[in-house]
């Protein structure tokens, strides 16, 4: 119904967690894996270069809301995955297989049906097999991830340029604007996941 919002895709998936008899349950191991998964620059979703936001959480069971509602239980615990990203699911699967197969496997190998992440096809078919269609998606942006990061990085440098241009004549201001425009054009898009979005280090 609404997996898409303009150029954004909202993926929602529920992955059944393996429930078998062993010394330590997959559920417990999975919680530890998720807590130790890097969440900054260079992490699984950062490396895809497409993801604005993602979350993973475990649904053990539905919450009972008291009478007159019924108490009920799920047959399995589920790992919920939500991702908001640029483009289509195929492109995301391709990036995960290319740059995040190991991290992806460390999480989803604890779920039923996982067939590896070594190819884009395997990742895509698993994501699709566990996808729950998003009913309503809302995104308060009209800019893709590289555009957003570039703008955040440029804003501070533009403010610095304005400060330097105070009191200058038109010719000097032109030179400052030209210089910054050229520098910004040459700067690669900053990497996602950092608190301070910057491309200074690449100059």
């Amino acid at each position: 119904m609404s997996n898409r919002y303009d150029s954004f895709y909202g993926y929602t998936g529920l992955f059944p967690i393996i429930d078998d008899l062993q010394a330590e349950s997959h559920l417990d191991i999975l919680r530890e894996v998720l807590m130790s998964l890097p969440d900054g620059r260079g992490s699984l979703f950062s490396r895809t270069g497409l993801v604005h936001g993602a979350r993973l959480f475990i649904i053990d069971d539905p919450v009972y809301n008291g009478r007159p509602s019924r108490e009920e239980h799920f047959a399995y615990a589920y790992l919920a995955l939500s991702i908001t990203f640029d483009g289509e699911l195929e492109a995301l699967a391709e990036r995960i297989a290319a740059v995040g197969a190991e991290a992806f496997t460390s999480v989803f190998s604890h779920c039923y049906g996982f067939g590896g992440a070594s190819s884009a096809g395997a990742v895509l078919s698993y994501l699709k097999a566990c996808q729950i269609e998003t009913t309503f998606l809302y995104v308060d942006s009209d800019v893709d991830l590289p555009g957003t990061l570039s703008a955040l990085a440029a804003q501070r440098r533009i403010a610095d340029m304005i400060e330097r241009a105070q009191g200058c004549g038109p010719a000097e201001r032109k030179a400052l604007v030209r210089d910054l425009a050229e520098r910004l054009q040459l700067s690669p898009a900053p990497e996602p996941g950092d608190f301070v979005t910057s491309n200074d280090r690449d100059l």
Binding site: L34, H52, R55, D140
Partner: peptide, 23 residues
């Protein structure tokens, strides 16, 4: 949540909108 990732965690919605407008 057991895991949460944001691509620009240091920026609010308004920060992003302002930066895009300035750019």
């Amino acid at each position: 949540n057991d895991y949460y990732y944001m691509a620009y965690p240091g920026s609010t919605v308004t920060d992003v909108k302002n930066a895009v407008d300035v750019h």
